[in-house]
Design a protein around this nucleic acid. Structure first.
Lengths: 229, 229
DNA sequence: AATTTTATTTTGTATGAGTATAGCGCTAAC
DNA sequence: GTTAGCGCTATACTCATACAAAATAAAATT
């Protein structure tokens, strides 16, 4: 797990978390490469590369003489996997989590509908296997959670829409952080397998409309189980 | 327009375009920083920073001894504004454009529905202004196209969902390519303004359901005008 | 044959010097 | 008094070189 951290990566992570957590406000400046990098105890090289990473994600902008400044939130790539991870590494902002669930509620049902129309027999086999694994191990185990994610990933693959898949995987991954958080503190009351099987059956039948509603139901129940509000 | 290009930025752009265009296939390696950077006539510093930028967008990964390799398409951040720009800078891949449009068909109707419920008077004013600009200049002009994109951006903003709003650039790209495809076919038979006004009216009335269907209609008609198939 | 050790290649980090850009203040002209 | 042009300077940007660490491959050892 503790895969040796590259320095620039580590710096980007530190700065990124500081920015999303609000420690640096938009407009604030990271003034002076030399001072900043010295303050962090690293050389300019990895520090600058970290700046490039954050700039690539829309969180910083830097010009000669003007310095390096935090950009307004609107230009951050909030759907970037790293940015999402940084967001959830601290206190997850409730409004933001709710917004993510809302977005997921838009995307995944649509993906399920597309999947119903475009799935191949190969997809169906793989989904069936994932479901069986899920039922066998249960969601409290590593293997069960992996099977759950695999099931959702297969739906995206079957939907045959690349941009949709990247979007949904980012959102899905971040949502799973919160799920993990929930499970730590709670009961895991309901068996999620039947909900998933309903989605699978609709996709198998090629019934796009039913697949959409089944997925909506699944997400709604999952959201209620979290008890966010 | 020609705002002086920083070197690392320029290199990232060149490499990024080469990757999305397929000149470098996933799995291919950019072997040897020193050779590569020398071949480009630059020093290692900006070359490495360009690598960091592309890595941050999920298109490269690099490890000591193993070299720097292009990652599989599935891990690219296709919704990153820069990546999208690189995608569209070359030949427009029809399948990708269609997929992006399909995604738009998922996002925008839902956004319109949310906007109908959450828009402020400020949003309405701005949207009305964008519409007037659109009607005044027409979609064949720069100003008109800008107003079109602004209108769609405002809908996402009015939906009051931050992650959703970050998709504005993606949607914007889709919008601009819609008009471009239309004009290539030299058809331009129908006035798009009424469709937009229908969406606006529904949002103004706070009618979420009507806003959704109006947006769906708008997109369907626009898609037909594109004549992708 | 499996395992440990060594070698080697490639990226990663450190450092210092010099360049170019863009904001700021100054001057001068209107 | 205002504005336009000009030079100054702070800051990021680029270059060059050296060395360290990491991961794979090969070799040696058990």
């Amino acid at each position: 797990m503790a895969k040796t951290p590259r320095l620039h990566q580590s710096i980007a992570r530190t700065l990124g978390m500081a920015i999303v957590s609000g420690a640096y406000q938009p407009g604030d400046g990271l003034e002076g490469e030399i001072e900043q990098s010295f303050a962090m105890g690293v050389s300019r090289t990895p520090y600058r590369e970290a700046i490039r990473i954050l700039t690539a994600k829309g969180m910083l902008e830097s010009k000669p003489k003007a310095g390096t400044r935090v950009t307004p939130r609107g230009s951050w790539n909030l759907l970037d996997p790293d940015v999402l991870a940084w967001m959830f590494s601290g206190k997850p902002d409730r409004d933001f989590v709710r917004a993510l669930f809302e977005l997921r509620g838009v995307i995944e049902p649509a993906a399920a509908a597309f999947a119903a129309q475009r799935r191949t027999s190969w997809h169906l086999e793989a989904m069936a296997y994932a479901l069986s694994q899920m039922a066998q191990h249960g969601l409290s185990t590593e293997a069960g959670q992996a099977a759950d994610q695999e099931f959702h990933r297969l739906i995206l693959a079957a939907a045959d829409n690349e941009p949709l898949a990247t979007l949904a995987s980012s959102v899905g991954a971040s949502v799973s952080w919160t799920t993990r958080f929930k499970q730590r503190r709670a009961v895991l009351p309901r068996d999620p397998v039947p909900d998933h099987e309903a989605v699978f059956a609709a996709i198998e039948d090629g019934d796009a409309c039913r697949a959409r509603t089944a997925m909506e139901t699944l997400l709604r129940l999952a959201f209620e189980d979290m008890g966010l509000d």
